[in-house]
Design a protein around this nucleic acid. Structure first.
Lengths: 187, 187
DNA sequence: TCCTTTGCGTACAGATCAGTACATAATGCC
DNA sequence: GGCATTATGTACTGATCTGTACGCAAAGGA
């Protein structure tokens, strides 16, 4: 029971869940795709829910790391970084295997607000909101909390719309909207 | 096989699917909850997918009717109506059984872009976008298509955020953002 | 070499999935 | 009333779901 074996399982499960959804992906399929035996799978994760929670933790880490790093590559000042966030989004939308936000989907499949999976999905959004708020404060916005929330709305809306309309334009439109909001919040 | 019996089944199925999700709701449970026999159910709908598509059609009709009507009750001029849309959203968020947007959830559970359910979910958003575009044009916006898309982003983002953060504030924040964008597009 | 412990694969349990076969009950027509 | 058609309820199919029981093989200690 090597500890990195567990990580490998989580990585693989992440791909499959992201592509096909949670309810639609059975443990049997995961067992086949990872090549591990069912007993081993259930040694590492006592239930499917526990596996999903581990997957969401990894996804949260991966996504936020990538997002923040990419933004810092694209821009220097906090204000520019807030706008660059939407360029990063656009890059994400253009990836071949883009399938929307895993946390929105998790919240959609596990709707009970008290369900651990739903709670964890909300936590991801809260952390992103914190990041935005921090940038808004550094940029000198009049009401950093409000502006951050508005930019988050644009981000989430862009993701959902990109998925359902199969278009990458939402990233561009969201960026222009963010520009207007930012200008308004700084003046 | 009364024709209104079918509508009744769709109405009931809508409630259950909306509350519990598509994959998580089996035909057996629907049969029990509607009180109809399984044979009758499959006489009206040849497959589960066909039932879901009928449910989405009804939901699209219900939601857009309610949305447009409520907006017209709340405001008179096109510009005010665009803002009132977010007040209507806020009322929706406050409903006890608010569980987010059924079409976002449908798109999340049926991710294949060619899947009929995914396509139909996208169609709903397209129709909403058309409605917004029409209002933007009437309001005299400089670029009605762009503004409409941006307002749609705010709406979708507000829904997703309201669900995951269990808060109704997104409606308020979205409205204020819409106000700024609208002002900017008219000036 | 023998014994114990640990890890893994297979086969299975019981529930539930979508969908159907078939018998019975209700209805329309003459 | 007698007959054909249609609607319905039950019981079932084979597949798949999450999770487990058990047998075997490898490894470690004396």
């Amino acid at each position: 029971m090597r500890p990195n074996k567990r990580d490998e399982l989580v990585r693989k499960a992440l791909q499959v869940f992201y592509r096909d959804g949670f309810h639609a992906t059975g443990m049997d399929r995961l067992v086949v795709e990872t090549g591990v035996s069912k007993t081993s799978m259930y040694k590492h994760f006592r239930t499917k829910e526990e596996l999903i929670l581990a997957v969401l933790r990894l996804r949260d880490e991966n996504f936020r790391n990538w997002f923040v790093r990419r933004i810092e590559e694209l821009a220097d000042t906090p204000a520019d970084q807030l706008l660059a966030a939407f360029d990063a989004l656009g890059e994400w939308f253009r990836e071949d295997n883009f399938r929307g936000c895993m946390f929105i989907k998790a919240g959609a499949e596990y709707q009970d607000p008290d369900h651990p999976i739903h709670v964890q999905a909300g936590e991801h959004k809260r952390l992103l909101l914190e990041y935005f708020t921090d940038l808004c404060r550094k940029a000198g916005a009049r009401d950093p909390d409000k502006l951050a929330c508005q930019l988050l709305l644009l981000k989430e809306g862009a993701i959902v719309t990109a998925v359902l309309l199969h278009s990458c334009d939402p990233a561009r439109d969201a960026k222009e909207a963010a520009q207007v909001l930012l200008q308004n919040a700084l003046a």
